[in-house]
Structures are given as C-alpha cells and as structure tokens.
Design a protein around this nucleic acid. Structure first.
Lengths: 184, 184, 184, 184
DNA sequence: CATGAATGAGTCTTCATTCAT
DNA sequence: GATGAATGAAGACTCATTCAT
C-alpha cells in the first residue's frame, strides 16, 4: 500500500552494504548503484555519508532497545519475562541480521560516539538483570550476567549466520534455558 | 637482549592503530609516523598494506590458538583444564587487548578470508567442549557451549576495556565458575 | 504601483548575493531561497546562471552609463557638468552599492567579455574628459584624467562601504573640488 | 644557482591562474597542469587550496607593504619621498602584475579576511599621507588623499594592462606630479 | 635500508541543469 | 508557472604505491 521512498531505500541499501563489507569499504557510489540512482541524488536526502551512518545506528539501536524493553517490562513472572527477552533479542537479530551486525560493527569503529546515543539495548538487559538480582533470581554479578546474556546471544546469532548452527524451531527456548540455568 | 626490528615495529604499530581506529581508517603514513620512519620505508618490509593486515591476523590468531590449545591439552582433570582455558583466554585478551580487538574487527570486515586461516582459536575451544560432552561433563549442545564460552569471555573483556568492570584479582576464577555451572 | 515580477526578484537577489559573496560562490539554490522559490523555477525565467550574470552586468552597466551621460550632457558650464558627473557617479554607487561592486567584480573575472558591452560607464567619463581637454580646462592626459576620476571615486565609495569614511552631507562636493583641482 | 622548488612553482602558477581567471575558476588540476605535476602532488606542499590562496595574499601583501614603507621612510624631503612612493607603487604593479591583480581580487572576494593580515599596503600610504598633512604639505582629508593616491595608481596600472595607456619612460614621474598637485 | 616527492585511481561532495508531476 | 527529485560532470582532497636519490 505504501510506497517506500528513496530516503528509506538509501537507508536500507546502506545498512545492507555497511553490514556486509564495512562502512569505509562502502562508497556512496555503491549505495547509489544498489538503490538504482546516481551519487548526487543521495545528497538530496542526506547531508553526508556520516549522516547515514549515524542515523542508521540511532534508528536501529533505538528499535532494538524498544523491543527488549517491551519484553523486560511485559506481564508475567520474572522467568517468563526473562525468556521473552531472550526471544526478543534473537528475534531482532534474525529479523534484522544486517542491522544487528551493523550495530556491532559501529561499536567497534566508533565506540566513542556510541556514548552519545541513549538508551542503548544493553540498558534494557541491565534493567532485567538488576531486577533478577534484586529478587534473588539471578545469582551472579550484574556485569557477569550482562556479559553472559549479551555475549552468548550474539554468538548464537553469529553461529547461525555462519551456517554453523541451524535455526531450528525451539532454538530460543533452548538457549533461554541455558542462560537461565547459568544465571540462577 | 634481542632488539626489536623495524619489521616488528611496523607490525606492532599497525596492530595498535588498526585496533584503535580501524584498518581503513589507518593510513600507511600513520603507521610510519608511529614507528618513526617514512612511508616508503614500510614497503621495504611489506609488499602492501594488506600483507600487514593479513599477517597480523594470521600471527595473532595462531598465537591465541596455541595458548588455548596448550591449556586444553594440559595435565589434570577436565575441570582443571577448563579453568585453565578460561584463564588462557582472558590472559590473552588482557595481555594483548589490541590483538584481541583486532582479531574481532578482522572477523567483521573480512569474514570470508578468515576461513583461509587454520587453526583458529575457536578450534581449541571446540576441542575442549567436545571432550566435555563426550565425558558427560558438559550437558549443552556443542554450539551453545561454544557461544556461551566465547561470547561471555569476549564480553567480559570488553566490559573491562570499557571501564564498566574492574579487573580485580580472581576475576578469571569467578567467571570460570559461572561458565562451568552454565555448561555442566 | 507596478508589482515586481519574479524575474526581477531573481535579478535583484542575484545581484545582492553575487556582490556579497561572489558569483561562483552563489548557487542557484541560494538565489532561489533568497527569492522564496525553488531552483527549478529560476529556469522558467532564465536559460542559465550565466544569463543572469551577463544580464545583470549589461543592465547595470548601461544604467550607470546613462546616469553619467545625462550629467555629462546636461546644461550649464563645464565645471557645473563636471560636478554633476561626480555626483552622478557617487550617487549611483551609494544608491546601488551592490550593483557597483558587482560591476567591479565582473571586470575582474570576465574582463574579456566586458568588451562585448557598449557603451560602458567609462565612455561617458571619457567624453567629459575629452571635452575638458579640448577646452583647456583639463590639463592632464586623458588617460591620467580617467584614472584619477574613476579611481578616486571608486575608492571613496569603497572607503565609505568599509566604514573608514563617513558619508556626510557635502561629500560629493568636497570630492568634486579635489578632483577639479587635480585635473585643472 | 638555486633551483626553484615545486612549492614555489605551485605558488607562482596559482598566482598566475588566480589573477587571470579568478580563484574559484582555477582548479587544483589547472594548477597542477601548469606546474607539470599531478593533482596529488600539490597536497604534499599545501594542506588545501585555501592555504595557497591565503599564503599568496599574505606574502604579496607584505612584500607590497615593505616596498611602500621603504620608500615612505627613505631619506630626503617629503616631496622626494612622495615621488619615491608613487614609483614604488607602480614599480610593484608593473613587476608583479599578477600579484597586484590578485591582491585586488582577494579584497573583493574575501574582504572580511583581509582584516586578519597586517600590515597592509594601505598602512604605508596612510603613514605618508598623515605626515604630509601634519607638515601642511597635503591639504585634503586623509581619506580623500588615500582614495586619490591608491585609486589613481591602481587605475593607471589597469589602463596600462588593458593596453589603453602606454608604459612609457617617465610615466611614474608624470603621474607623481599629477598626484602631488592634486593633494597639495 | 630510508626518504619523501610524485602518481593516479578513487572518494566524498557540490551544483547547474533537466524533467516528471 | 512552480516543485523538488534526479542527473552527471566536475572539484577538492586522500592515500596506497612507486621511484629517484
């Protein structure tokens, strides 16, 4: 029903290329070609390449945070919400593999600038972890819990992406159980 | 007593700069300046920038693998070796933060090429995990175990680097225990 | 009572911007914004940017010439007409500072093309000077006289513009006297 | 004996082209071609085009000032020094026509930035004029005197350049006399 | 071995101009 | 007449690489 505008096409093409090859490795010309326009046209929609780079990070970082936050603050027992958060995390990754990879890459290359964005996905995880600790349901230090939660899920996603792990039905539940056991 | 040659200085300077700013973001001139020589001199030691980039990955990837492998194949019970491997992992990270970050970055930007290198650090971890599973000491799927092990340790290192976690005495043991519990 | 058309608005906006920042430094978009229309609309009125550039020079060059010529050929003694011409010169400058600056700038950047325009303001001055010489009222070579007349008045205007000289009542008369004395 | 370095060649070529066509109208490629090198080489000697633009103005503005100042502060009567200053002015113009035209052009396009440079040629003229006024030898306002002096000489130069006035022997003396008469 | 000037192929960005709506 | 997206040809600047000294 709704046509996707050039601006969004540029954003999507950029995300794809950035996540595949890197930011510096992707030229404005590459993006233009992917969209099917010429270089100059990009600049009617964005002031600079960096505006795309930053805009992309901000948008997906926020989107990811919101999905996590929604799960964290949803109804039900802590365990249920914990599982929902695992699902939300992996759901975001699998639905937006480019976006997740891009967020990761951005962290590597522009770590200083990440601080200017808020809230970040990890804030939602931290909220969950802290509640778990407060209620005695998570027994490890908050930083260890954060590392375990985020690190494991990130690697699960990367293994699936690399074809080393099949994305079968029930994956999220299984991983959720492993994490729950590890933390409680 | 052995003096560090220009070639090694170039490698070290490159590693530092690559891990700090990125590969594309580091110029041959930057490297030369860091070493205290001029651009042209670099080419006396390396045929191209990419030879440095690739050489660095190969060298540290192997070094990391060897340290992990040594721990995996060391003497003692499985549990002892497991703990030693955690220590070897974090030890490598903390002793060579640039190298670890660089290995990570390289994975993002040149994932295809990573396959040309062997053995990779993860192979050592996989060896450990598989033994654990065979002996019934690790109860989760090998891929989950790999993700948990590597992902968590990577994040622990990143949290320390970011100043969000103090690198206190006993960190390795604590994290080792958490991982052991998670996997067994 | 007659409304100023879009075409004239474009001309006026262009003159302002060209004289303030330079021709190359002013974009079609700048002009459009100043007028309150969009880029494309400019091309409804002018075939190209250069048509504006050239049109502006032709129009103001002619206008300037006419005002000078009118003074030169006015009634009265030579001295009276000389003074009137000084007044006409400075009058044009102060009433149309942008135009005068633009004429000057155009001379610098497009000196070759200036020759295609005729008559030029200097032709009127030359007419005055030659008459003065013929009547023995101007005693210096025609080229010196031209340089003195035009050069001095131009600089007077520029000093006023730069805030280094106040544009007080009687300025024209005083300057006229200085020039008269210098030439006779 | 001394070879002219690339840096100076670039400066000279830039001056020539800038004064002939304008600054914006001259590209780095034009300059490189004029020098006989490629674009990139320019940047080994200058950080940016603007560094050339500004450097050129600073250098010639200072050089011009110094030549004027030397004449103004030379030995002899005020009249003698006045004449020497006229000669110094025209001497600079005729020896460095490109430089003089460039200084003028820069004033038009970058008037704001001119203020950052000091001393400027006009400061030397002002020094002369003020002394003349103090001694009762110049009878017109300092600003009028400045306009007359600078404006006339500039136009004399431009007329010679345009081929409208021959640069014959004794030109400087004749013009000097006209100016002296005009001011005293 | 080292220097640093030079090359040349890009890279981002700008902008006059065109054109479908 | 007007809009504003798009084009395409530059233009300033960068940088890996080469090479004469």
């Amino acid at each position: 029903m709704r046509r996707i505008g050039t601006r969004d096409k540029i954003l999507l093409a950029s995300l794809k290329l950035f996540s595949e090859r890197g930011i510096r490795e992707t030229t404005i010309k590459d993006i233009a070609k992917e969209v099917g326009i010429t270089e100059g046209a990009i600049y009617r929609h964005f002031k600079s390449k960096d505006e795309i780079v930053l805009g992309l990070f901000g948008a997906y970082s926020e989107e990811f945070y919101k999905r996590l936050e929604k799960a964290v603050r949803s109804e039900g027992s802590f365990r249920e919400r914990f599982m929902r958060t695992v699902k939300a995390f992996l759901g975001f990754c699998f639905e937006n593999p480019s976006a997740f990879k891009y967020l990761d890459l951005f962290h590597y290359l522009r770590s200083e600038e990440v601080k200017n964005f808020s809230p970040l996905p990890k804030d939602a995880i931290l909220e969950l972890v802290e509640e778990g600790i407060r209620h005695g349901l998570i027994k490890v230090r908050r930083e260890y819990a954060l590392a375990l939660f985020v690190g494991t899920l990130e690697r699960i996603f990367l293994l699936v992406e690399a074809g080393m792990l099949e994305r079968k039905e029930g994956l999220e539940e299984e991983v959720g159980e492993v994490l729950w056991k590890a933390l409680s």
